[in-house]
């Protein structure tokens, strides 16, 4: 039986009086493209840092490819590559020196040079090979961070907000590269603020909110399991509407109003009846499934 790529069991983390993680449990199977979403402060980075061994969990277990991150840290760290969120670099070294150093930390010498050259090629860094990291643009530094995370060919790759603050062109290049890694058999864990990114790339998604898993499911299931659909009313609903209708409004534009409509048949009928009472006709209303962003906002309470 193959081990899961990531296995988290009841992970708790307290920083002083702050409870950053409250019993987080989930598994990521090998070969998955998994999204970890959540608002700022939800505990995503803490969780990633625990997987990487940068932070120690107060309680619970985390294993990477079956290796416990505390007891078998050498094995677990050899199996995971982390692309950090911050653009960190060592200003003393060139791109090539940094990759050689990072590769050496993993016990890999000259035999790994061919792979390092390939990484430079794939990430379009070959021309910058002997450039000091200090002189690179933000986008190039981001590419170096990705190369550093991959020097030891880890089966599990964690991309912590890789596209935060990068231009459109680089964002597309990074998406393409993440897809390529996935196609090559890597398990990918992606955290992102761009929900369309998660929606288009991830197979399964966990939504973390205030240190807890608020939802964990297949992307489509997550959308369909949600207790409401979205009604697009082709007119602007005024202020003289009943309170239970006004509280269901998601957004208003110049010519339409988006409104939460219960998924359950009986409640939906009641709601549509109430809409017709305020003059919303059937041909003015279109029902659709919520986007991941709308599900996310509902689950994390950020739309309230």
């Amino acid at each position: 039986m193959t081990s899961p790529a990531l296995d988290l069991v009841q992970v708790e983390k307290q920083f002083g009086t702050t409870h950053a993680l409250r019993g987080v449990s989930f598994r990521v199977e090998q070969g998955e493209f998994f999204g970890l979403l959540g608002p700022n402060g939800a505990g995503k980075s803490t969780l990633i840092n625990i997987m990487a061994g940068l932070v120690r969990a107060t309680s619970g277990q985390v294993a990477v490819m079956g290796y416990d991150v505390v007891r078998q840290y050498r094995d677990s760290r050899s199996q995971i590559g982390i692309v950090p969120q911050e653009l960190v670099y060592d200003p003393f070294f060139t791109v090539w020196e940094m990759l050689k150093i990072q590769s050496g930390y993993f016990g890999l010498g000259r035999e790994n040079d061919e792979w390092l050259d390939e990484l430079l090629e794939i990430l379009k860094l070959t021309e910058k090979r002997d450039e000091n990291l200090h002189n690179l643009s933000g986008g190039m530094k981001r590419r170096v961070l990705i190369a550093q995370a991959l020097v030891h060919r880890p089966p599990v790759v964690v991309l912590d907000e890789p596209t935060a603050g990068v231009d459109v062109e680089l964002r597309r290049a990074l998406w393409e590269f993440a897809h390529r890694l996935h196609r090559d058999g890597h398990t990918i864990l992606l955290t992102t603020h761009y929900l369309e990114e998660a929606e288009s790339m991830c197979d399964r998604i966990a939504i973390l909110d205030r240190g807890k898993v608020a939802a964990l499911s297949d992307k489509q299931e997550l959308i369909f399991q949600n207790s409401y659909r979205v009604g697009v009313v082709e007119r602007v609903l005024g202020s003289n509407i009943p309170q239970h209708v006004s509280t269901a409004i998601i957004s208003r534009s110049r010519s339409s109003t988006q409104i939460r409509v219960p998924r359950e048949q009986r409640l939906q009928q009641q709601f549509l009846q109430q809409l017709s009472e305020i003059g919303v006709t059937e041909d003015q209303l279109q029902l659709r499934e919520p986007t991941l962003e709308e599900v996310f906002l509902t689950l994390t309470g950020e739309d309230r």
Binding site: A52, G53, L54, Y73, R74, D75, R77, S78, I82, P84, E86, V88, Y89, D90, P91, I101, Q102, Y105, F106, G107, Q148
Partner: peptide, 12 residues
């Protein structure tokens, strides 16, 4: 600088 993580992520 935050680059201490490169060493801390390694199996050392």
């Amino acid at each position: 600088n935050g680059n201490i993580i490169f060493v801390l992520l390694a199996p050392l």
